[in-house]
Design a protein around this nucleic acid. Sequence first.
RNA 1: GCCCCCGUAGCCCAACCGGCAGAGGCAGCCCACUUAAAAUGGGCCCAGUGCGGGUUCGAGUCCCGUCGGGGGUACCA
Length: 971
Amino acid sequence: MSERIPQHRYTAELAGRIEAAWQDRWEAEGTFHSANPAGPWAEPDDPRLGTGHRYIMDMFPYPSGTGLHVGHPLGFIATDVHARYLRTTGMNVLHTMGFDAFGLPAEQYAVQTGQHPRTTTERNMEVYRRQLRRLGMGHEQRRSFATIDPDYYRWTQWIFTQIYHAWYDEDAPARTGGGTGRARPIEDLVEQFAAGERATPDGRPWGQLSRVEQAEVLDGYRLAYLSDAPVNWCPGLGTVLSNEEVTAEGKSERGDFPVFRRSLSQWMMRITAYADRLVDDLDRLDWPEKVKLMQRNWIGRSTGAQVRFPVTTTDGGQDAVEVFTTRPDTLFGATFMVLAPEHPLVERLVPDAWPEGTREAWTAGEDSPRGAVTAYQRQAATRSDMERQADTRAKTGVFTGAFATNPVTGTLIPVFVADYVLMGYGTGAIMAVPGQDQRDWDFATAYDLPIVRTVQPTPDHPDDQAFVGEGPAINSANDEVSLDGLDVAQAKERIITWLVGKGLGEATTTYRLRDWLFSRQRYWGEPFPVVWDEEGVAHTVPDHLLPVELPEVPDYSPRTFDPQDAQSSPEAPLARATDWVEVELDLGDGRGVRRYRRETNTMPNWAGSCWYYLRYLDPANDQAPVDPAVERYWIGPRPAPVAGAPAGASDPGGVDLYVGGVEHAVLHLLYSRFWHKVLFDLGHVSSEEPFRRLINQGMVEAWVYRDERGFPVPAAEVEEHPDPEGGAPTFTWNGEPVTQEYGKMGKSLKNVVTPDEMCEQYGADTFRVYEMSMGPLEQYRPWETRAVVGSMRFLQRLWRNVVDEETGELVVVDAEPDEQTDKAVHRTIDGVRADYEALRTNTAVAKMIELNNHLTKLAEVPRAAVEPLVQMVAPVAPHLAEELWSRLGHDTSLAYAPFPEADPAKLVEDTVTCVVQVKGKVRDRLEVAADVDPATLEELALASPKVQHAMGGAPVRKVIVRPPHLVNVVV
RNA sequence: GCCCCCGUAGCCCAACCGGCAGAGGCAGCCCACUUAAAAUGGGCCCAGUGCGGGUUCGAGUCCCGUCGGGGGUACCA
């Protein structure tokens, strides 16, 4: 039957041949190479250096063993289209793609298959490379790399050492020139200590501290430091995890295993030092509001006051319970206090006996406060996070037997221990203000504690609830200060001033953000460039000895445990490589060759993705991660701030367009911003942010079909039966009825469609056009294979407008296009350019289809009409466009052929259709001159018989004239 | 619970600063080509914008409420 198909029809088979040929040619000619101004690849004479530049980037893929499905390339195609468009406007465009190849899945897959992670990872990357090439990606191949390349992770380790040898000086002027706070080399701090400008923790002179003591002091400042603190231990994965990698349910984000709090010695990154800048600088980024909001919430900055409540300890000493509150204005309503069960002060507050008059309900039935508190602490400690989640409403707690003094009222208020107060936030203690906090209200009603309202509730506010809204202060005065009548903001200000004056408190800010746990007990990650000496002091490996290469080990799989075994401890696989761990080195510190033990943890896989955008800029540089001039050229600050930035904001620099999934909203994007800011502070980069503009592409989802037992059946084999009544269609598989639902694309749901299949059946260009015409980039959309033919038909028609299907001869004519066609061409150019500019490829494709359909109807297709169309289609269907371009007689690639220009004169119509409405309803349409004056138009409209009829003789009250498109008569 | 996003034709989606609801595609139907087919060509059909109010000369678009779907977060003091 194939002999019936015209020989030169644009079929999948022909598309495949054309595509392979152009891919070879692009590669051979280095079509997508961009020009660098400096560094190893400097081409200072390249003319593109003077014509503007754009850096377009995708979140690089993790090469999984299953390859790509049709959802993965959505963002990649979008950036490729945009990059290709930008090249035709003369820009120097950098667009490449590497691989995020370290990490858990690669290791787990390798464990499953019994092969070395490097073997499987490299094979997976080959599959990805082939798949991406087949899709016609215009990636600059020479800039591509993987995070597992020693040449790359050498610099990842180098950055770690930079961070390790830095501390955050709150008081130093910011490098931007405004404000204070920046990272500085640790040597500056050592100098301050040595010179006595800064006191050591115990006051002894720096020189009198031992090497170990000095190291410990510095660890308290370093931006990368070792901490012995409770961390997230996941026995099921055999590693510790960062807070960001643990879900709200207390499970590992990857694998959904239980996570337990264990105190372990681990590497941390002092990201909290950057909390303010990470929040504030979001304003200067062109990112989705949703992502900015997620980062703001994650950092969780809240401002308020730290207030001290005097207490007498059991030994008779005077101490104070320090609380953090965002509502210091409600201090007069603090009728009791609550400490977290783990609060260190608890032990020194609990008396031997219950004070006289202690209520039965406060004692939990125990004979002594000590017994009650200990029992409660034990219970709180054994309750898992899951259990705590389960009953978030019910408040439990126990009286400590101690009282504190409310510093503004002078009254003694009872101190409780309750697990609704968390040790990890604020100071681990609160002043409870039931009148203005619902949690405190719940606790107060449960334990019969006094409630004092200190903000006047609104009249309709229920009597049995805390009032958390705005209002004037009431019941808030003592002999020295009165807040009564002030609004919340004023009251806060006045009470803080008073507290500061009395030495009872001060304004403070707290954050939800915690430091970033940076070590993992895995094999497949970057080794730390750290060794330990005999005294247990850490040293970084000198730069010239980097990279510290990952050793070969007989058994690279991690030791995992029963997921529920909270008492197990991590074992780093690298610790088994004893030949590697024990090492003799000269660190160049004057102490000569000595014996050291290597650090056996590895870095989390976020490390590699923290800075890859910098390395793309200058991947062959062996002197620095990136040449400073190259960095400044590509991502240095631009003169104008981003759209929507607050007045007076400056551009922070960064990648011009970064496209990726919203799942990295806090993890990768927060870590990456943090590293970038450290590098900025230390003077290694000129930009303050890594990614100036971010877009989250939507996901391609798919239909899932299940049989009667609920098992998924192969979606591709399901038949759809339309309902004759016009209702919902029904579905069968092998004749059996199946149900349809919407979900992710995945192997287990038997609904995976791969780009390879699409290239096979339709060709890469068709696939690209289809993905781009499904809807806006940000949108989630269902995959529908049968709809792909629409894109195929479009390209086929375009082909036919240039090439005779039977003979392969050119069919275009050199005659001038008629006026209508000419205008359609220019209108399309104008619209498509704007659409490409704004990444609205779906509407760009629609406009091109429209023009193409118009050309199809002509007896002969004029060259002057179809050539611009071929150029316009090139970003989306590059192979077809190149082929037609060459058949039209051009011998150079159109990758850099200037995008067609619309002639403004041809965009204006001589006459337009004017709509005449009566009371907002369309009653007539008039053909009028485009430049008709309002008075004439009004006259014409009122003279219309249809309008007169619609008015029914009613008098004209008002006429709205919007020439030339609309007249609205109000009667 | 709180916060954010989205509801337009059977389906995927357009609609600029509020100004004719339809650009494009799928499916369906009809016709042509064909021995037959379709990944061919031509044509046709299809909603008043989830629902209820409001502002306006005029609302898919702005405001309020409500329902449905998706996402984030959750004793954060």
